[in-house]
């Protein structure tokens, strides 16, 4: 240890640190998607929203010098995309999955197009809290250098559980997600509720994107997301539409992403492609193991097209 290395002990630490670092975008996108899906709609377009959030957040942080302004604008950009998704889906005979794919494309395209001037400059980064002050080990200090957005996500997950379960708002969202017909009969505005849920989901996904460009890895370029938004949508199914499970699943997916590099840093360099694909294999395996053709998934909103 005198040389500053941790050897094999570094692997679990790196996975933990990686889980915290890498999970935040997964967390925000999946919480947003969870809320949207609870209202009975799926938004596959959050990949585009994530990338748009990353680009707009970076651009605004660079322009204003304030990373938090970037986070806010990223969220607003995400809201715009959420509203667009909800607006198109509220029309008759429109498939929400198709709208999601369309917005994924549009969001990515716009972000790449408008983001060209921001590949080069360096924008100010979000600050982090040093929660590892109690340790003398620099690696532990670094692992516990935690971004405020991660903590926000950590609080948001139980808050969302509570809101969905115990508030009137949450109840309305769940009713709309269970049966639009019943909700209408009870006098709830189905489309307005879904609009609010999708817009909020878009906001959260946009904020998740700003984490990518403003904290980790902390710069804007076109390869930044590499499919994290779409993975996060799959993660919601993995997490059974439970915000707390979304939180744990996001940590798991983040940690899985960190496992490959961590193992290699101690000399294990076999099969990194398959290791990189591990989260997808795991999600598919869990979907196969827990689905059934006879009844819908436990926790799944009945109105949701992907669970039928």
């Amino acid at each position: 240890m005198d040389d500053g290395g941790l050897g094999w002990w570094g692997v679990p630490l790196a996975v933990l640190a990686g889980a915290i670092r890498v999970s935040t975008p997964f967390l925000f996108v999946s919480l947003g998607e969870c809320l949207t899906e609870k209202s009975g709609r799926i938004n596959l377009g959050l990949e585009g929203t994530l990338v748009m959030g990353a680009m707009s957040g970076y651009a605004v942080a660079y322009g204003t010098g304030n990373p938090w302004a970037g986070v806010l604008v990223a969220g607003l950009a995400g809201t715009v995309f959420g509203v667009l998704h909800a607006a198109i889906c509220s029309l008759e005979r429109v498939n929400d999955i198709a709208v999601g794919i369309a917005l994924m494309l549009l969001g990515t395209g716009l972000a790449f197009f408008l983001g060209k001037p921001f590949i080069q400059p360096q924008a100010p980064q979000l600050p982090s809290l040093a929660l590892g002050w109690w340790s003398d080990v620099p690696q532990v200090q670094s692992a516990l250098r935690i971004n405020a957005l991660f903590l926000a996500g950590l609080l948001l997950a139980p808050l969302l559980v509570w809101a969905l379960r115990c508030t009137r708002w949450g109840m309305v969202v769940r009713i709309v997600g269970e049966s639009a017909e019943a909700a209408r009969a009870m006098g709830y505005p189905v489309n307005a509720v879904r609009m609010a849920a999708t817009a909020t989901g878009g906001f959260l996904a946009g904020v998740g994107g700003s984490f990518l460009s403003l904290y980790y890895p902390g710069s804007w370029n076109e390869g930044l997301s590499s499919g994290q938004g779409i993975t996060a949508v799959a993660l919601v199914i993995f997490a059974r539409w439970d915000p707390m499970l979304c939180f744990y699943a996001a940590l798991l997916f983040g940690g899985a992403g960190a496992l490959g590099p961590a193992l290699q840093s101690v000399g294990v360099t076999q099969g990194y492609y398959l290791l990189n694909a591990a989260p997808y294999i795991l999600t598919l395996a869990i979907m196969i193991a827990t689905s059934s053709s006879r009844h819908r998934l436990a926790g799944a909103p009945a109105e949701l097209s992907v669970t039928r």
């Binding site: 040389d3 500053g4 290395g5 941790l6 050897g7 570094g10 630490l13 790196a14 640190a17 990686g18 670092r21 890498v22 690696q139 670094s142 692992a143 990518l212 980790y216 890895p217 902390g218 710069s219 370029n221 390869g223 930044l224 590499s226 994290q228 992403g257 960190a258 490959g260 590099p261 961590a262 290699q264 840093s265 101690v266 000399g267 360099t269 990194y272 492609y273 990189n276």
Partner: peptide
């Protein structure tokens, strides 16, 4: 020299993760 292969030419998150892993192993 400790080496980490990311598997592709442009993978920002993996590259950051690789750099952090190396630094955690005492690379300076």
């Amino acid at each position: 020299t400790a080496v980490i292969f990311t598997g592709d030419w442009s993978m920002p998150v993996k590259e950051a993760e690789a750099a952090n892993s190396l630094i955690d192993q005492g690379v300076d």
